[in-house]
Design a protein around this nucleic acid. Structure first.
Length: 420
RNA sequence: AUCCUUUGAGAUCA
């Protein structure tokens, strides 16, 4: 059995699921009954391929063969659902296993929390965190890191700090992830002062900052309009013996763009190239955005071509930035054309690009066309957000079409999109 | 045999 199981697991991990399944059939024929681990390995194989129906089928089959699923089985299945963005199915399965007398462990909770956070379902994630803390599953350092991160992401720094204390009390030693998560959280909440304190604290705790730590701080400083301070860190990083990575460079380039030092930004882009760190889409997009803000659309378009020449694939954000600038430079029809090109290149528009175009059309007095785009976005299953409605309502109000504006507010209410 | 967490780019507003 062990030999068979090892082979099955290896086949599953290299994606050869049907071969693995044949071995299971051979085992059954040869009168060598698969054990729990055999089934778990195969279920994991199906789950990793996103084939939940076959995975669930195996769950049934193993039960019939008097092999009861254990915590590994359920965790594997829950993770399978989570990776398919069906965290709710995973959550239901957790309740089910609990009812069947198999208590979830910290891995079960970690899996679900991570999935809910990635789907931005924070209240659900919060709920799972509470269930975990209430249980006696003994959350791991990993669990605490996940929880702290999710509270930081919703701006609840204080809870993050409390959890930091709690984990220490429970004998979990904070690691570099913990510190980086908290530093990034503090930076995002515009508390670079806290971030700096944490930086000192981690050094004292014998956990030296890494490039990710500095990247987080640089990004925080840039957001707080302290681009100059961010640029000073360049030297600090060097003297700490760390290498700048692609994120450091892009963040610094963004800082330079924000203070309109486009020449320096461009120089740094060239420098990263010669330092063996070739710019990616994000780096190019930052420069493109910088030139847009500096009213040099021609330069932006030059960098757009360069990006294509270098074999980078423009992202939704790259397109959005150029579309926005085209619209705002009175070249709305070109903006619309660009949107079309983008879609032809297989990039699926989101609410932000649609809103960008709608805004462009509104501002060029083409409410009718704007409304057409709004309808199109709804037809394609893209939900308009508050900003979309703000743009439309603003235009209606400014042109004295108050009745239609009020109607629009009613639509918002129907869609549970609440005015801000 | 199961989770693998932290850092960079986009839209409205007097």
């Amino acid at each position: 059995v062990i030999t068979y199981t090892i082979v099955i697991d290896a086949l599953c991990k290299s994606g050869r699921i049907s071969d693995a399944y044949h071995i299971l059939e051979d085992m059954l024929k040869a009168g060598c009954p698969p054990n729990l681990v055999t089934y778990n390995s195969l279920i994991n194989g199906f789950c990793k391929l996103g084939n939940m129906s076959d995975a669930m089928e195996l769950l049934k089959q193993m039960t019939e063969n008097s092999c009861s699923p254990d915590i590994f089985t359920y965790n594997t299945l829950i993770d399978g659902y989570c990776k398919l963005e069906k965290a709710w199915e995973g959550y239901k399965l957790m309740k089910e296993m609990s009812d069947l007398g198999c208590e979830p462990n910290f891995i079960t909770y970690n899996t679900l929390m991570d999935a809910f956070v990635k789907a931005k379902k924070f209240s659900e994630a919060f709920n799972v965190a509470l269930e975990m803390l209430d249980s006696d599953c003994g959350p791991s350092r990993f669990s605490f890191n996940l929880m702290i991160d999710m509270f930081c992401k919703v701006g609840q720094l204080e809870i993050g700090y409390e959890l930091f204390q709690l984990m220490t009390d429970r004998g979990c030693v904070p690691d570099i992830y913990t510190y980086n998560i908290m530093i990034s959280g503090a930076c995002k909440a515009n508390r670079t002062d806290h971030a700096m304190q944490l930086l000192e604290r981690m050094c004292e705790a014998g956990c030296p900052p890494d490039i990710i730590t500095y990247n987080a701080i640089i990004s925080g400083l840039c957001k707080g309009c302290q681009a100059h301070e961010a640029l000073e860190l360049y030297e600090v990083i060097r003297s700490a013996g760390l290498c700048l990575d692609i994120v450091t460079y892009s963040t610094l380039i963004d800082a330079l763009c924000k203070i309109r030092r486009m020449d320096d930004a461009e120089r740094l882009l060239r420098e990263m190239e010669s330092n063996g760190c070739p710019p990616d889409v994000v780096a190019y997009t930052i420069v493109i955005h910088g030139y847009c803000k500096a009213n040099q659309l021609d330069k932006s378009l030059e960098f757009f071509s360069e990006l294509l020449e270098k074999g980078c694939v423009p992202s939704l954000i790259t397109y959005s930035i150029i579309i926005d600038k085209l619209c705002k430079s009175g070249r709305v029809s070109e903006g619309c054309m660009f949107l079309k090109t983008m879609m032809e290149n297989g990039v699926v528009p989101d609410a932000i690009v649609y809103t960008t175009v709608i805004d462009g059309l509104c501002k060029s007095d083409s409410y009718k066309e704007a409304y057409e785009v709004y309808k199109l976005m709804k037809e394609t299953g893209c939900a308009p957000n508050v900003v979309t409605y703000n743009v439309l309502v603003d235009k209606l109000c400014k042109t004295g079409r108050l009745d239609e504006a009020i109607q629009m507010l009613e639509v918002m209410e129907e869609e549970e999109c609440f005015p801000d």
